[in-house]
Amino acid sequence: MRDYLLHRTGTGLLVLWAAFTLSFVLLQVLPGDAVLIKFQNPDLGLSPQQIAEMRQSYGADSPLWRQYVHTLGAMLKGDFGYSVQAGVPVSEQLKSNLPGTLLLALFGFVLATALAFTLASLARLPALRPLRSLLQSAPALFISIPTFWLGIALIQIFSFQLRWIPVINPSPWQGMILPVVTVAIPISAPLAQILLRSIDQVVTQPFVVVARAKGASETRVLWRHVLRNAMLPVLTIAGLLLGELIAGALITETVFGLGGLGQLTQQAVNNQDVAVLQAVVMISALGFVLINLLVDLLMPLFDPRLQHVTGGSL
């Protein structure tokens, strides 16, 4: 178990380093300069010498290799640097914006999981068997809808036409309903597709035939025997969908005007605030690594045969 955890942790650290390096290189080749964008404004009345001193204070005039080493070392200590545009540490901006994004992502994932299991369960019920093909095609429809378009469509239908959910001065919970649905629908699609295929494979296994022969109802067979064994592929795809979930949350926050990493990222892109963008990338990569490590640790709980891979029971 210890060797397995060390191996998975080492792999995660390698992924984080690769994400940092790739994002650093891509952000450095972007045209423009955040320091010049802010301080070269004629209204500020700064001289070229003062602007050069500003660039020096932010380390913008240092060689790229030195900036890389300095930024990497600072991030290892939990220091994400300073935002050029806001003039405050990036960690303070993350502290105020990250909780809202995490809350939206969490609720979105819960709703997506509920939608996926509902679709898969309905497709297996004998009473709804004629609708099976329609239910199986629903995930493909969900995943083909762009997140920004879905958010705008939900606002148009439920806020402007039906007037069920206000978009102007809503309560905190009312303001979360449509964003959560917007995030959940595209994520529920691949989860439902994988779950449906996995269920179709599991129902042909001998232990399912034995359960039916003992007189168990179709619903009992589905919930007690089929779903637990069909969970492994779903857990795997759930971990891989984290990046899409975070990306969808960022886009959704922009569409609905929510405070969070989405708004922070939009402002950083407009102002080419490299420190903020680098921090957002690393937060996303860290979340991806942690959720996939959690998935790897949960898999033996659903299939004891995998416990020998981790070196024993969890």
Results as ranks from 00 to 15, higher is better:
140 A>M: 06
29 V>M: 12
129 R>Y: 07
18 A>M: 13
30 L>S: 03
69 V>T: 14
201 Q>S: 15
2 R>W: 14
200 D>Q: 11
162 L>N: 09
209 V>Y: 10
235 L>R: 05
256 F>C: 08
64 L>E: 01
49 Q>W: 06
81 G>S: 06
128 L>D: 07
70 H>D: 14
145 I>N: 02
256 F>V: 00
231 M>A: 14
293 L>T: 11
305 R>E: 08
96 S>H: 12
161 Q>I: 07
241 L>S: 14
140 A>H: 04
109 F>C: 07
17 W>H: 02
154 L>M: 12
194 I>K: 00
232 L>M: 09
143 I>E: 11
230 A>V: 03
182 T>D: 06
150 L>N: 07
39 F>Y: 15
21 T>D: 05
36 L>Q: 10
258 L>P: 06
256 F>Y: 15
27 L>D: 03
19 A>G: 00
239 G>N: 05
79 D>A: 03
239 G>W: 03
92 E>G: 02
94 L>W: 03
80 F>I: 08
220 R>L: 04
150 L>G: 06
69 V>Q: 05
304 P>A: 06
286 L>N: 01
264 L>E: 01
112 A>E: 06
89 P>E: 10
200 D>M: 04
284 S>F: 05
281 V>N: 09
121 S>L: 12
38 K>G: 01
242 L>A: 11
123 A>P: 09
291 I>M: 07
200 D>N: 07
40 Q>M: 08
228 R>A: 09
145 I>P: 05
27 L>I: 07
208 V>L: 01
132 R>H: 10
29 V>A: 01
50 Q>M: 14
279 A>W: 02
220 R>M: 12
264 L>G: 01
133 S>R: 14
91 S>I: 04
174 Q>E: 15
304 P>Y: 05
233 P>M: 08
18 A>E: 02
114 A>C: 11
197 R>Y: 13
165 I>D: 12
162 L>Y: 09
86 A>L: 07
207 F>G: 07
64 L>D: 06
288 F>H: 08
309 V>G: 03
64 L>S: 02
200 D>T: 01
72 L>M: 05
86 A>Q: 15
172 P>H: 07
81 G>Q: 04
231 M>G: 10
141 L>Y: 06
286 L>H: 01
31 P>K: 01
50 Q>E: 15
45 G>H: 02
173 W>S: 06
176 M>K: 12
154 L>W: 10
113 T>H: 01
25 V>M: 11
153 A>I: 11
215 G>N: 06
263 Q>M: 13
26 L>M: 15
293 L>W: 13
68 Y>A: 02
295 V>G: 04
305 R>M: 00
94 L>Q: 03
118 T>A: 13
138 A>V: 14
292 N>F: 05
44 L>K: 04
210 V>I: 12
202 V>R: 02
207 F>N: 05
48 P>Q: 11
184 A>K: 09
91 S>E: 12
13 L>E: 05
83 S>Q: 11
178 L>D: 09
129 R>T: 12
248 G>N: 08
40 Q>D: 13
128 L>M: 14
267 Q>A: 15
6 L>Y: 09
155 I>F: 08
130 P>S: 10
194 I>A: 08
214 K>L: 01
94 L>H: 00
127 A>W: 13
273 D>W: 08
187 I>V: 15
223 W>F: 15
255 V>D: 10
30 L>P: 00
43 D>C: 00
42 P>G: 03
156 Q>N: 15
298 L>D: 01
82 Y>F: 13
236 T>Y: 04
309 V>W: 11
153 A>L: 15
